[in-house]
Nucleic acid binder design. Sequence first.
DNA 1: CTCGTTGTTTCGAG
DNA 2: ACTCGAAACAACGA
Length: 283
Amino acid sequence: MPELPDVEGFRRVLDSCVRGRSIERVEVADPGVLREVTPWRLERALVGRCFAEPRRHGKWLIAATDGPVVLLHFGMTGSLVCCSPADPLGRHDRVAFVAGERQLRYRDQRKLQGIRLVADQDGVRRALSELGPDALDVGPAEFDELIDGRRARIKAVLMDQSVLAGLGNLLADEILWRARVAPDRQAAGLAAEERRRIHRAMRRVLRDSVRVGHIPAGSTWLTGRRDSPDPACPRCGTRLRRGRITGRTTLWCPHCQGEGQALSGAAGVPAVEQDPSDDPGRE
DNA sequence: CTCGTTGTTTCGAG
DNA sequence: ACTCGAAACAACGA
């Protein structure tokens, strides 16, 4: 689940749960989720400290305190939950930050070392230095620059965290579907008009999903179709195509987005360019 | 037992 | 040097 909108949701959970509260204890049920920090050192560094306003960059949650900073990543299955001491420890509750009657629990089915500890803002900067700008902060001009000259397929570029931070597999499919661009088009081969459509779709998809804290599975979203065995395009009803890009399952509509360059030939801009007959999709 | 999964990191080819 | 993509990582469910 966790892509940018989900992490933004976790940020709000942290904010309302423990911001301004003093950390009494850090309970590490499973040290497997800690990266380069021992349970003992984590506890030592945080006890007595106060959670400040949390920030987010891409899929990273930046949990600052009046001392060190905790960095949280949620991999594919992680989440953050606000609990009371009475709530029984779930099977996948790996770490609990205890602050009085509230406790913030890091929950993850897997153990992909999503929790880091850094001393200060400079440590945050160093730890996240490989990331591109947060996808929500990228305007149209910057988007163009980021895409410019990339030989990879557009979906791979959108998911590349060093280019743009925050988009994952589901969002990338959703955005390209809305922009009516096939996911296997080479980024460098996109027309200015297509890049603009992708950027606008990105803004729209992010805005709508950040609002609810996850990617909506509504009837006008591609994402909800993912699990059905024979999914149809929410816009035109055409049977969706399923493929694999950069090792991830990719869904697209051959009618709205074109077959993709592999099938449309070297000269071809797919028949997406003229948009008279297609209705512009509704929310 | 096999395959698949929303994520990142690492390695090797072009 | 740079860019890309596949594999590895790991735990679980179908």
